[in-house]
Design a protein around this nucleic acid. Structure first.
Length: 414
RNA sequence: GUGGGCGUAGCUCAGCAGGUUAGAGCACCUGGUUGUGGCCCAGGAGGCCGUGGGUUCAAGUCCCAUCGCUCACCCCA
């Protein structure tokens, strides 16, 4: 094969694009009903936008970005996530001054250079929502409710919500130090990567899957002990609101989101039947991000959800039959122009109309009409042209009637 | 970056301990109906058996290398 897609990238073929469109339409619909508006940002950005917000020591920034030097000197990067670009746009266009709460959602491709596996690609798609301006638990609950609503409207089964709070900025600082104090004496029992993280980002040790290290975690200090009173109250309010909304969740004090900018509430939606990569949605509060990127201090909360993973976890529902598809068969050479005109008349009435462009036999064209799921066929042959009539065949019943050419629009308009 | 599994027709896969023109199902095309689909029947087209090298009288089959896909680790959506 001469050319094929780059490792970790995939074509979305015509036979699959309908499912994508359905997914997208539910996302648009639910987001808009919650009062969110779509934002579209460029596919690539200044590299430092990501390194500064996501964190130098994260896997994304340290080894997964597609980065190159621009001819004019700067360093550019294909976006590996979308919260930072949206925050950048929020600051750049001073959106905070247009209304006290900015609610936005987005949809599009992202790029991370990882080893592909089930549920992981190098180009993949996420949708997400972000709300800037409110620090209150209602905002947290609203964001989570949007996710919950979308997943249930998609008919997703077997998904669950995990919840944690990382506390506010200062609390994280104390907790970090406490973790370092705890792990430093045990340093030689830690893996090489964990030892590095002990220096740079000890929180990341918490989500290790190494059984040896998990044993050590049992005695480690818990984040909950470092929450400020406000942190604890905020988190407890979020939980209360979720309960009021009948959104089930479970607490997971071990859940540390991979990106540096998270504060307070963090959450993940997990799906069964996805294999090792089971998170379909992840998000949380990031009250410090806007300021880090040079904007006014602005509380914010959002999530991102993986569209491929969502589609994978949805049951493959069978092909829907097009309810209004028509197939036009013309067998007369001199009537080709006329056939095209008739085709357009039917299309103007709102029908999907397909025509053969291979000059095939009647039989072949009928077979084709059947294959694409056409409901009706219009047949133009020598007799019909001579008599100024048309045959209309109903493929669902097999019945066929002859109508006057002049009655065509009337026939389909009903 | 590390490890496991797999590369045969468009798709899903057979191919016995190496042996002659490489198979099936589905899909596609034609005919059975001088102008009538689906079902059925008959026929047809479509393969450098991933690539390169080696062993052998003989390689889809064995060995080595390489490329690709896939699953998992790390981490994430």
């Amino acid at each position: 094969m001469a050319f094929q897609t780059i490792k970790g990238t995939h074509d979305i073929l015509p036979e699959d694009s309908t499912r994508w469109q359905e997914l997208e339409s539910i996302i648009h619909d639910v987001a808009v009903r919650f009062g969110y508006s779509e934002i579209r940002t460029p596919i690539f950005e200044d590299t430092s936008l990501f390194s500064r917000s996501v964190g130098e020591d994260t896997d994304i920034v340290s080894k997964e970005m597609y980065t190159w030097d621009d001819r004019s000197g700067g360093s550019l990067t294909l976006r590996p996530e979308l919260t930072a670009p949206v925050a950048r746009a929020f600051i750049q266009h001073n959106l905070g001054s247009k209304s006290p709460v900015q609610r936005m959602y987005y949809l599009g491709p992202l790029f991370r250079r990882e080893r592909p596996q089930k549920g992981r690609q190098r180009q993949f798609h996420q949708f997400g929502i972000e709300a800037f301006g409110s620090e209150y638990p209602e905002q947290d609950a609203e964001i989570i409710a949007v996710g919950q609503t979308i997943f249930s409207e998609l008919g997703l089964k077997d998904f669950s919500l995990k919840l944690n709070s990382l506390g506010s900025g200062e609390c994280r600082g104390h907790y970090k130090k406490a973790l370092q104090d705890y792990f430093n004496p045990l340093k030689n029992q830690l893996s090489e990567t964990s030892q590095k993280r002990l220096e740079t980002n000890p929180l990341r040790i918490l989500d290790t899957k190494n059984p040896e290290e998990q044993k050590l975690l049992a005695g480690a200090p818990s984040i909950a002990d470092f929450w400020t009173r406000d942190d604890a109250e905020h988190f407890s309010n979020v939980q209360d609101l979720l309960s009021v909304l009948d959104i089930p969740f479970e607490l997971d004090p071990q859940m540390v989101r991979g990106l540096d900018y998270y504060t307070r509430t963090t959450f993940e939606f997990i799906s069964g039947n996805l294999g090792a990569q089971d998170a379909i949605c992840g998000g949380g509060r990031y009250d410090g991000l806007v300021e880090i990127l040079g904007g006014k201090p602005t509380p914010a909360m959002g999530f991102a959800a993986g569209m491929e993973r969502i589609l994978m976890s949805m049951e493959q529902n069978g092909k829907k039959i097009e309810g209004n598809s028509v197939y036009l068969i013309n067998l007369v050479e001199s009537a080709r122009g006329k056939a095209l005109q008739i085709a357009n008349e039917i299309r103007e009435l709102g029908f999907t109309l397909t025509m053969d462009t291979l000059r095939r036999s009647l039989k072949a064209q009928l077979r084709d009409a059947n294959r694409i799921g056409a409901v009706k066929v219009i047949i133009m042959g020598d007799d019909e042209i001579k008599n100024q009539t048309l045959q209309i065949k109903d493929l669902t019943t097999g019945e066929q009637e002859e109508i006057a050419e002049s009655d065509l629009v009337k026939h389909f308009a009903v």
